[in-house]
């Protein structure tokens, strides 16, 4: 089981960029282009890791600490996420609180790094980032509360293992509402359409991407890899909550979950291709919907 307990982490570390590749490829195909190879995100990271760096004269050590803390906090959060049939590397009462707050720490550090540049664009992105995630946080924790109440466990690995067909059959409304809330939180926290457009060419309209304008080289690689891990983390929770399609042992379940992740990535790509971004003023309302959904999920 030693190999098994490391498996969720290893899979995440290895395949998170691939998920980004799948999303990008889906969008290209829908747009009628051939698109980049699925492995392009890995090559991008490789290239960035071997570059030098340019730092702004305005910045201080905070700017250099930002990407490091961002990546470390996401790596640590991933050790708490189970995947497929395998429990997470570490699991204890209240571990999902730690997941939420590790992500808050990551956000804290990137926001400060953005403010360190003194750029008004990056300040703007930072401001939006803290606004939207402050509203996403109650939805995230209430969703966890709904899952905890439903499964009567307060640790992520046991909660996700306890979600079975019979649990779904018994309380499908709760699980589906939680899924919907988590999905909105995922979109907001990961800078996806309809909250944010990671590929826009206008800095004024960006959130996450505009915060990291000044990072370059290895720093930017850490930011990009961290973003991929964060997407993976949320998607893994969502796949864990979704109805379990598997039969058989943990390995089979892992394979099914992996397929689920890729389907999820394709679905994200399809959503991004078929939807426009919301106006920024509408985003808090979307997040409010997430809070209401998760509150309903708890109440049911």
């Amino acid at each position: 089981m030693v190999a098994g307990s490391f498996l969720p982490l290893i899979v995440a570390l290895a395949l998170a960029p691939l998920m980004q590749g799948v999303i990008i490829r889906t969008k290209s195909v829908v747009a009628g282009r051939q698109g980049q190879p699925l492995t392009q995100p890995y090559w991008d990271l490789w290239k960035l890791l071997h570059k030098g760096a340019v730092y702004s004269q305005t910045t201080s050590w905070i700017f250099q600490l930002g990407p490091v803390v961002w990546l470390v906090s996401l790596l640590l959060a991933l050790t708490l996420i189970p995947f497929g049939g395998f429990p997470a590397l570490s699991s204890f009462s209240g571990d999902f609180i730690v997941v939420a707050y590790l992500m808050a720490l990551g956000r804290f550090s990137t926001v400060l790094a953005a403010l360190d540049t003194g750029s008004s664009f990056e300040g703007m992105g930072a401001s939006r980032e803290v606004t939207f995630s402050a509203l996403a946080e109650p939805a995230l924790l209430l969703s966890f509360a709904a899952l905890a109440r439903q499964t009567e466990r307060i640790s992520l690995s046991p909660v996700l293992t306890a979600i079975s067909w019979s649990a779904w059959a018994h309380s499908a409304p709760t699980f589906s509402l939680t899924l919907a809330a988590l999905l909105i939180v995922l979109l907001a926290e990961n800078a996806r359409i309809p909250v944010d457009d990671p590929t826009t060419h206008l800095e004024l309209t960006m959130i996450h991407e505009v915060m990291v304008l000044d990072h370059s080289g290895p720093d930017f690689a850490m930011i990009q890899y961290g973003s991929a891990l964060k997407m993976w983390l949320f998607a893994a929770i969502i796949i864990g909550v979704a109805p379990p399609w598997h039969r058989g042992g943990p390995w089979a379940e892992t394979a099914v979950s992996l397929a689920g992740m890729m389907v999820f990535a394709i679905a994200t790509g399809l959503v991004e291709s078929s939807m426009a971004r919301l106006r920024l003023l509408r985003v808090p309302q979307l997040l409010l919907v997430a809070i209401v959904l998760s509150a309903l999920a708890v109440a049911l």
């Binding site: 760096a53 340019v54 004269q57 008004s120 304008l213």
Partner: peptide, 9 residues
């Protein structure tokens, strides 16, 4: 590793 002004678009 070089230093430059902040990238302000």
């Amino acid at each position: 590793v070089s230093m430059g002004p902040t990238w302000d678009c």
